[in-house]
Amino acid sequence: MFHLQLSLFSKTKTLEADIDNFHNKLINASMTFGKAIDVYLREGRSENFKKISRQIKKIEHEADALRRSIENQLYGNNLLPDLRADVLQLTENLDRIINKFDEATYMFYVEQPEIPDEYHGNIRELGRLSAECAENMGKASRSFFRDLSSVRDYSQKVYFIEHESDLCSRQLLEKVFDSKLPLANKLQLKQFINEIADIADTAEDFIDELLIFTIKRSI
């Protein structure tokens, strides 16, 4: 019995640490993404931007490894039998958001879009909103494991910020298509705007799922 309790506690601690680290990765990825957009708008594909882009790739790799470790522990050690499917879904969702940060940064890296100065403010704002939305999604998800009562608070923030991001992306799209830019540039910018705004949309979709998991978890 004593051995059983010890091994159970050590398994619990390892899993808890992995889940915590995984959430840290999402928050790091969202903050680094905001910085990447800022640097790109100021310096283009500079060495500094390349460094930040590599940082996001590294975070994405580490998050993948953590996700696999969490999945293995959950199934291998038979932990959380009744909520395992929900926890897996949640970690996969968070991982998808981290992937989206990586994809968007990589698009900037490869395509090097030319963004006229007049749109910098709006794009910076859109990047900030998407990053903030994902960060709050991460906080809501962390609360799911730590303190259920806070999930709703962070969810509400995600809904609000996603709405702001929607307004911002629409304004930006209208501005772009009202401009005299060549159609090819307009379409490229549209693709970038949608890619960034999609991060906030995805975070909002995942919050809906998280709220259902929360209802299932509350006793």
């Binding site: 019995m1 059983l4 309790q5 159970l8 506690f9 398994k11 619990t12 899993l15 808890e16 889940i19 932990l79 959380l80 909520l83 926890v87 799911f144 494991f145 730590r146 303190d147 009562s149 978890r217």
Partner: peptide, 19 residues
């Protein structure tokens, strides 16, 4: 609700509690 036990710890305690 008042002790803010984490989900993973709750699972661990429930397991021991069930035994």
């Amino acid at each position: 609700r008042h002790c803010h036990i984490t989900l993973i710890r709750q699972d661990c305690y429930t397991r021991i509690g069930l035994i």
